[in-house]
Protein backbone atom coordinates (compact mmCIF):
# COMPACT_ATOMS: atom_id res chain seq x y z
CA UNK A 1 0.00 0.00 0.00
CA UNK A 2 2.77 2.28 1.01
CA UNK A 3 4.66 1.45 -2.12
CA UNK A 4 1.83 2.21 -4.26
CA UNK A 5 1.45 5.52 -2.60
CA UNK A 6 5.08 6.25 -3.05
CA UNK A 7 4.95 5.14 -6.59
CA UNK A 8 2.06 7.38 -7.28
CA UNK A 9 3.78 10.05 -5.30
CA UNK A 10 0.85 10.27 -2.99
CA UNK A 11 1.40 11.63 0.46
CA UNK A 12 -1.04 9.88 2.66
CA UNK A 13 -0.32 12.03 5.60
CA UNK A 14 -0.98 15.06 3.64
CA UNK A 15 -4.23 13.58 2.54
CA UNK A 16 -5.11 12.78 6.10
CA UNK A 17 -4.12 16.22 7.20
CA UNK A 18 -6.09 17.70 4.40
CA UNK A 19 -9.06 15.58 5.32
CA UNK A 20 -8.76 16.60 8.93
CA UNK A 21 -8.33 20.17 7.91
CA UNK A 22 -11.23 19.91 5.57
CA UNK A 23 -13.36 18.37 8.30
CA UNK A 24 -12.30 21.10 10.67
CA UNK A 25 -13.01 23.64 8.03
CA UNK A 26 -16.42 22.15 7.51
CA UNK A 27 -17.06 22.05 11.21
CA UNK A 28 -15.90 25.62 11.69
CA UNK A 29 -17.74 26.80 8.65
CA UNK A 30 -20.77 24.96 9.77
CA UNK A 31 -20.66 26.45 13.18
CA UNK A 32 -19.57 29.89 12.18
CA UNK A 33 -21.24 30.42 8.85
CA UNK A 34 -23.71 27.82 7.76
CA UNK A 35 -25.68 27.61 11.02
CA UNK A 36 -26.05 31.40 11.46
CA UNK A 37 -26.95 31.75 7.84
CA UNK A 38 -29.41 28.89 8.21
CA UNK A 39 -30.90 30.52 11.25
CA UNK A 40 -31.17 33.78 9.40
CA UNK A 41 -32.70 31.99 6.46
CA UNK A 42 -35.12 30.19 8.76
CA UNK A 43 -36.03 33.40 10.51
CA UNK A 44 -36.44 35.06 7.18
CA UNK A 45 -38.53 32.19 5.98
CA UNK A 46 -40.64 32.32 9.11
CA UNK A 47 -40.93 36.03 8.67
CA UNK A 48 -41.99 35.57 5.09
CA UNK A 49 -44.41 32.84 6.08
CA UNK A 50 -45.77 35.05 8.79
CA UNK A 51 -46.04 37.86 6.31
CA UNK A 52 -47.86 35.60 3.95
CA UNK A 53 -50.13 34.51 6.76
CA UNK A 54 -50.77 38.11 7.60
CA UNK A 55 -51.38 38.84 3.99
CA UNK A 56 -53.79 35.95 3.78
CA UNK A 57 -55.54 37.16 6.89
CA UNK A 58 -55.67 40.71 5.60
CA UNK A 59 -56.88 39.46 2.25
CA UNK A 60 -59.62 37.49 3.91
CA UNK A 61 -60.57 40.42 6.02
CA UNK A 62 -60.45 42.60 2.97
CA UNK A 63 -62.62 40.16 1.12
CA UNK A 64 -65.04 40.10 4.01
CA UNK A 65 -65.04 43.86 4.15
CA UNK A 66 -65.47 44.08 0.42
CA UNK A 67 -68.35 41.67 0.57
CA UNK A 68 -69.78 43.58 3.47
CA UNK A 69 -69.38 46.83 1.60
CA UNK A 70 -70.86 45.34 -1.50
CA UNK A 71 -73.77 44.02 0.51
CA UNK A 72 -74.27 47.34 2.21
CA UNK A 73 -73.89 49.13 -1.08
CA UNK A 74 -76.53 46.87 -2.50
CA UNK A 75 -78.75 47.56 0.45
CA UNK A 76 -78.13 51.28 0.16
CA UNK A 77 -78.78 51.12 -3.51
CA UNK A 78 -81.98 49.21 -2.88
CA UNK A 79 -83.01 51.69 -0.25
CA UNK A 80 -82.13 54.54 -2.57
CA UNK A 81 -84.19 52.95 -5.29
CA UNK A 82 -87.07 52.54 -2.87
CA UNK A 83 -86.72 56.12 -1.77
CA UNK A 84 -86.53 57.29 -5.34
CA UNK A 85 -89.59 55.25 -6.17
CA UNK A 86 -91.35 56.60 -3.13
CA UNK A 87 -90.30 60.13 -4.01
CA UNK A 88 -91.50 59.59 -7.54
CA UNK A 89 -94.82 58.33 -6.23
CA UNK A 90 -95.05 61.25 -3.85
CA UNK A 91 -94.15 63.62 -6.63
CA UNK A 92 -96.75 62.05 -8.87
CA UNK A 93 -99.34 62.27 -6.11
CA UNK A 94 -98.37 65.88 -5.47
CA UNK A 95 -98.49 66.58 -9.17
CA UNK A 96 -101.93 64.99 -9.39
CA UNK A 97 -103.11 66.93 -6.37
CA UNK A 98 -101.69 70.18 -7.73
CA UNK A 99 -103.27 69.49 -11.06
CA UNK A 100 -106.55 68.67 -9.37
CA UNK A 101 -106.39 71.78 -7.23
CA UNK A 102 -105.41 73.87 -10.20
CA UNK A 103 -108.30 72.44 -12.15
CA UNK A 104 -110.71 73.06 -9.32
CA UNK A 105 -109.34 76.52 -8.84
CA UNK A 106 -109.55 77.30 -12.50
CA UNK A 107 -113.13 76.03 -12.53
CA UNK A 108 -113.88 78.09 -9.48
CA UNK A 109 -112.28 81.12 -11.07
CA UNK A 110 -114.24 80.56 -14.21
CA UNK A 111 -117.44 80.10 -12.21
CA UNK A 112 -116.68 83.19 -10.17
CA UNK A 113 -115.91 85.16 -13.27
CA UNK A 114 -119.17 83.96 -14.76
CA UNK A 115 -121.04 84.92 -11.61
CA UNK A 116 -119.28 88.26 -11.57
CA UNK A 117 -120.11 88.83 -15.19
CA UNK A 118 -123.71 87.85 -14.53
CA UNK A 119 -123.88 90.14 -11.54
CA UNK A 120 -122.38 93.00 -13.51
CA UNK A 121 -124.81 92.28 -16.29
CA UNK A 122 -127.68 92.37 -13.82
CA UNK A 123 -126.31 95.57 -12.31
CA UNK A 124 -125.97 97.06 -15.73
CA UNK A 125 -129.53 96.04 -16.51
CA UNK A 126 -130.75 97.56 -13.27
CA UNK A 127 -128.77 100.71 -13.89
CA UNK A 128 -130.02 100.91 -17.41
CA UNK A 129 -133.58 100.32 -16.31
CA UNK A 130 -133.23 102.91 -13.58
CA UNK A 131 -131.81 105.42 -16.00
CA UNK A 132 -134.57 104.75 -18.48
CA UNK A 133 -137.22 104.99 -15.77
CA UNK A 134 -135.67 108.14 -14.34
CA UNK A 135 -135.45 109.65 -17.78
CA UNK A 136 -139.04 108.78 -18.61
CA UNK A 137 -140.40 109.91 -15.28
CA UNK A 138 -138.27 113.05 -15.37
CA UNK A 139 -139.75 113.90 -18.74
CA UNK A 140 -143.18 113.03 -17.41
CA UNK A 141 -142.71 115.26 -14.40
CA UNK A 142 -141.50 118.04 -16.67
CA UNK A 143 -144.51 117.70 -18.92
CA UNK A 144 -146.88 117.55 -15.98
CA UNK A 145 -145.20 120.48 -14.31
CA UNK A 146 -145.39 122.55 -17.46
CA UNK A 147 -149.07 121.74 -17.86
CA UNK A 148 -149.90 122.44 -14.25
CA UNK A 149 -151.80 125.68 -13.69
CA UNK A 150 -153.33 126.99 -10.50
CA UNK A 151 -156.75 125.62 -11.30
CA UNK A 152 -155.29 122.16 -11.70
CA UNK A 153 -153.36 122.61 -8.45
CA UNK A 154 -156.50 123.61 -6.61
CA UNK A 155 -158.35 120.69 -8.12
CA UNK A 156 -155.70 118.27 -6.92
CA UNK A 157 -155.78 119.77 -3.44
CA UNK A 158 -159.55 119.57 -3.35
CA UNK A 159 -159.43 115.98 -4.54
CA UNK A 160 -156.99 115.17 -1.77
CA UNK A 161 -159.15 116.84 0.83
CA UNK A 162 -162.47 115.43 -0.31
CA UNK A 163 -161.53 111.94 -1.38
CA UNK A 164 -159.74 110.97 1.78
CA UNK A 165 -162.11 112.65 4.14
CA UNK A 166 -163.79 109.54 5.46
CA UNK A 167 -161.58 106.53 5.23
CA UNK A 168 -158.00 105.72 5.95
CA UNK A 169 -157.17 103.59 2.99
CA UNK A 170 -154.73 100.73 3.13
CA UNK A 171 -151.16 101.18 2.12
CA UNK A 172 -151.89 99.80 -1.31
CA UNK A 173 -154.54 102.44 -1.96
CA UNK A 174 -152.13 104.67 -3.77
CA UNK A 175 -153.19 108.20 -4.35
CA UNK A 176 -154.02 108.86 -7.93
CA UNK A 177 -154.51 112.56 -7.83
CA UNK A 178 -152.01 113.05 -10.58
CA UNK A 179 -153.70 114.64 -13.58
CA UNK A 180 -151.42 113.07 -16.11
CA UNK A 181 -152.83 114.01 -19.46
CA UNK A 182 -149.88 114.24 -21.74
CA UNK A 183 -148.20 110.90 -21.18
CA UNK A 184 -150.21 108.11 -22.79
CA UNK A 185 -148.65 105.44 -20.60
CA UNK A 186 -149.68 107.12 -17.38
CA UNK A 187 -152.86 108.74 -18.60
CA UNK A 188 -155.25 106.05 -17.27
CA UNK A 189 -153.94 106.50 -13.77
CA UNK A 190 -154.34 110.24 -14.01
CA UNK A 191 -157.92 109.99 -15.13
CA UNK A 192 -159.09 108.38 -11.94
CA UNK A 193 -161.16 111.13 -10.38
CA UNK A 194 -161.13 109.96 -6.82
CA UNK A 195 -157.73 110.94 -5.60
CA UNK A 196 -157.58 108.76 -2.55
CA UNK A 197 -154.38 109.68 -0.77
CA UNK A 198 -152.13 106.97 0.33
CA UNK A 199 -151.66 106.51 4.01
CA UNK A 200 -148.25 105.26 4.92
CA UNK A 201 -147.03 104.42 8.38
CA UNK A 202 -143.78 103.08 9.66
CA UNK A 203 -145.50 99.72 10.17
CA UNK A 204 -147.07 99.31 6.79
CA UNK A 205 -144.00 100.65 5.07
CA UNK A 206 -142.41 97.23 5.44
CA UNK A 207 -145.51 95.56 4.05
CA UNK A 208 -145.48 97.96 1.16
CA UNK A 209 -141.86 97.10 0.46
CA UNK A 210 -142.75 93.40 0.39
CA UNK A 211 -145.51 93.93 -2.16
CA UNK A 212 -143.91 96.02 -4.85
CA UNK A 213 -146.49 95.23 -7.48
CA UNK A 214 -149.39 96.68 -5.55
CA UNK A 215 -148.03 98.88 -2.85
CA UNK A 216 -145.91 101.91 -3.36
CA UNK A 217 -142.79 102.28 -1.21
CA UNK A 218 -143.03 104.08 2.06
CA UNK A 219 -142.24 107.71 2.16
CA UNK A 220 -138.79 108.47 3.53
CA UNK A 221 -140.28 110.55 6.28
CA UNK A 222 -142.29 107.60 7.47
CA UNK A 223 -139.28 105.35 7.48
CA UNK A 224 -137.31 107.90 9.38
Amino acid sequence: MGDIANTLNIDVSAIVINIIGFVLLIFIANSMVFKPIGRVIDERKQDIDQTYDTLDTDRRQMDELRQDYERRLAEIEAQAREKIQSAIKDAQAARDQILSEATDRSRELVARAEREAERERQEAMVTLRRQIVDLALGATAKVIGDGMDENRQRQLIDNFITSGGGSLGPASAVATATPITTNPETAPAAEKPAAKPRRTTAKNAAAAADAPADAAPAAPEAEA
Partner: peptide, 13 residues
Protein backbone atom coordinates in the same frame (compact mmCIF):
# COMPACT_ATOMS: atom_id res chain seq x y z
CA UNK B 1 -148.10 108.62 9.38
CA UNK B 2 -147.85 110.06 5.91
CA UNK B 3 -150.67 110.87 3.50
CA UNK B 4 -149.15 111.38 0.11
CA UNK B 5 -151.40 112.74 -2.61
CA UNK B 6 -148.75 114.54 -4.60
CA UNK B 7 -147.80 114.14 -8.21
CA UNK B 8 -144.21 113.69 -7.14
CA UNK B 9 -145.23 110.91 -4.77
CA UNK B 10 -147.22 109.17 -7.46
CA UNK B 11 -144.33 109.40 -9.85
CA UNK B 12 -142.00 108.01 -7.21
CA UNK B 13 -144.33 105.08 -6.59
Amino acid sequence: TVFDGTVRGNLER
